[in-house]
């Protein structure tokens, strides 16, 4: 009752809806993009996620959150699922769910780790592993609307086989610069030796702090802690650094 003071805001319940798998695509040996048909999907902001609910025949059900990889496209929503070894949900989604099978989805969720097309400042995207997924949605929306906002992506992966969206990022787009950071193994003739992201990488390939970019950092906790700490040390204001972390239990 007393709580209605805050509820002047729109509060329509996010409903679960059946979502049939219409296409799957391998992104890497351990990650699959799953395209679902969501009739009546009202669209989303890039960076938002959905909740996915799986129900077994005996009635047991469980939920996980997944970032949306795609730009809004009518009733189609794409998620990219990284198989977590020994996970309860991701191996099923990555390996077993077949075209025509259904899950339940509700969303979109999240109003902070998003890029809004009316933002005009430069954007710095820093991804670790499958943390690139919500950032890819931002890149795709930027392309879809023909935005000229300059984007830079620093994308850290273990080795070339772990790249997600490699061909699409290699094709690139005007005003989008992508820098690959390989931590364990590089392609042949690669100038930067394999190693974790360093402040020097951010100085060379990111934006200077006085350009006042909005920085989006997404990946495993250790990666996000390190990258966000480096950005602060380089003078980026903490208010312009948005983070999203994938715990090891994301499975």
């Amino acid at each position: 009752m007393a709580r209605t003071a805050v509820s002047g805001r729109l509060a329509t319940r996010l409903r679960w809806q059946a979502a049939a798998l219409i296409e799957r695509r391998e992104e890497s040996p351990t990650a699959q993009t799953l395209a679902f048909d969501l009739p009546g999907w009202a669209g989303h902001l890039p960076g938002q996620h959905v909740d996915v609910r799986l129900t077994a025949e005996d009635g047991y059900s469980t939920q996980r959150s997944y970032s949306i990889a795609s730009a809004p496209d009518a009733d189609r929503v794409e998620l990219t699922v990284q198989r977590v070894p020994d996970g309860e949900v991701s191996p099923y989604l990555a390996d077993d769910l077949m075209v025509g099978d259904a899950v339940e989805i509700r969303g979109p969720v999240g109003g902070w780790f998003v890029w809004r097309p009316e933002q005009l400042e430069p954007v710095l995207l820093i991804a670790g592993g499958s943390g690139v997924v919500p950032l890819m949605s931002m890149i795709r929306v930027r392309g879809m609307i023909g935005s000229r906002v300059p984007f830079r992506l620093l994308y850290s992966v273990r080795d070339p086989a772990d790249r997600l969206y490699g061909p699409e990022l290699d094709r690139g787009a005007p005003g989008l610069d992508t820098t690959w950071v390989y931590t364990r193994g590089t392609p042949d003739d690669w100038a930067r030796p394999a190693g974790r992201l360093t402040p020097d990488d951010l100085v060379r390939w990111g934006w200077p702090a006085d350009f006042e970019p909005t920085c989006y950092v997404c990946g495993p906790t250790g990666f996000v802690e390190a990258a966000a700490g480096m950005l602060v040390a380089l003078g980026h204001h903490p208010d312009r650094i948005r983070t999203e972390r994938f715990g090891p239990s994301g499975g």
Partner: peptide, 14 residues
């Protein structure tokens, strides 16, 4: 669902 580690979630730098 139950987890045994202690995930970290926050919206910005620590």
């Amino acid at each position: 669902y139950e987890t045994f580690d202690f995930p970290v979630l926050s919206a910005g730098p620590t």
